[in-house]
């Protein structure tokens, strides 16, 4: 028996969320008194592979020749590794690839699945995992009743821990089936921080009056090293791109720090952001519902407050 972590490389390197999953796997393995293995694929340097060892994997299974966006092939890859190390618990990140691969794997192995787990499982009286539900308005404790289990971990749920370990690397061969999905084109946005795994987010709403006023938001974000986000109407009217829309029907995020500027705090907006650790609200209306969900609030006009905040931050950074 062992624990297996699927470590999906992003352009040859592992994102923080991948290292979080590895740390999570190492902790689950420790609790179960077994080893944590990892499985990866494609062109990944030894230095990157070593990071998996440093974050708790004792063995890394690597299919170096496989390059694919096809979740069908990836689920066969993970199933092959799981058979090789006799894994009962399989983990991955609850990110774009994880959301496609984890359910396939669950169906393939008849393994009960919990997606978006936000804490370590407990094992007294059944294998139980916690996860946010109702778009963050509540949490559920799920029991996995099958012998094999698949869990995907919500990014930013546990910090990655470098324990200084090293992993043994094993080349993994197998038949991963035909590639049915091909990548035609990848378009990168330059200079922006990806929203789903950002640690800090500066978000603005209809209170900003128009798209021409986002300069101060972008300046504040870049000073903080934060991603930018917006409320739904702002994306719907086209002031900001759709991928910035956060909330119940947009991207759900849980950064360490969330600035809500000129956003009223409607229930559907809060649903996608209330997992944020610290929330700062800037709004002219002291009755704005967002203040109830906030840790820090500034009642004031964004057009005055934001430039002052930017100045104060610059002074703080020296």
């Amino acid at each position: 028996m062992s624990v297996l972590v699927f470590s999906n490389p992003n352009e040859g390197s592992f994102a923080k969320s991948a290292l979080e999953a590895c740390t999570y796997g190492a902790k689950v393995a420790k609790a179960l008194g077994t080893d944590c293995h990892a499985v990866t694929y494609g062109q990944v340097s030894d230095a990157e592979i070593a990071k998996l060892g440093a974050h708790g994997a004792t063995v890394v299974h690597k299919a170096g020749s496989l390059e694919t966006p096809d979740s069908g092939q990836l689920s066969k890859l993970i199933a092959t590794a799981a058979a090789a190390c006799n894994a009962d618990v399989i983990l991955c990140s609850h990110d774009l690839t994880g959301k496609a691969v984890a359910p396939r794997l669950s169906a393939r192995l008849k393994a009960g699945l919990v997606t978006g787990a936000n804490a370590l499982p407990t094992t007294d009286g059944g294998f139980k995992v916690n996860k946010p539900v109702f778009s963050g308005k509540a949490f559920a404790t799920e029991v996995i009743t099958s012998a094999k289990k698949v869990i995907s971990l919500m990014p930013n749920s546990i910090p990655p821990e470098n324990t200084g370990g090293t992993a043994q690397v094993q080349e993994l061969a197998g038949d991963f089936g035909a590639k049915k999905v091909t990548v035609k084109e990848t378009k990168k946005r330059t200079g922006t921080i990806s929203l789903p795994d950002a640690e800090k987010v500066v978000s603005a709403g209809r209170g900003l009056k128009g798209p021409e006023n986002w300069g101060m938001i972008e300046e504040l974000a870049s000073l903080l090293g934060a991603a930018t986000a917006c409320s739904r109407p702002v994306a719907d009217i086209g002031w900001r791109p759709h991928h910035e829309h956060v909330g119940q029907t947009g991207v759900a995020i849980r950064p360490n720090l969330y600035f809500a500027i000129g956003i009223s705090g409607a229930i559907q907006h809060l649903a996608g952001v209330n997992g944020s650790k610290v929330i700062v609200v800037i709004n002219t209306d002291p009755e704005a519902p967002f203040f109830k969900a906030a840790d820090y609030g500034v009642v004031g006009d964004a057009f005055q407050v934001v430039p002052k905040l930017t100045e104060a931050l610059k002074a703080f950074k020296g």
């Binding site: 009960g112 308005k137 559920a140 404790t141 799920e142 029991v143 009743t145 099958s146 209330n274």
Partner: peptide
């Protein structure tokens, strides 16, 4: 089924 919800908590 392979999973079931045991309980819920509010934040």
């Amino acid at each position: 089924p392979l999973t079931k919800t045991e309980s819920y908590q509010l934040p």
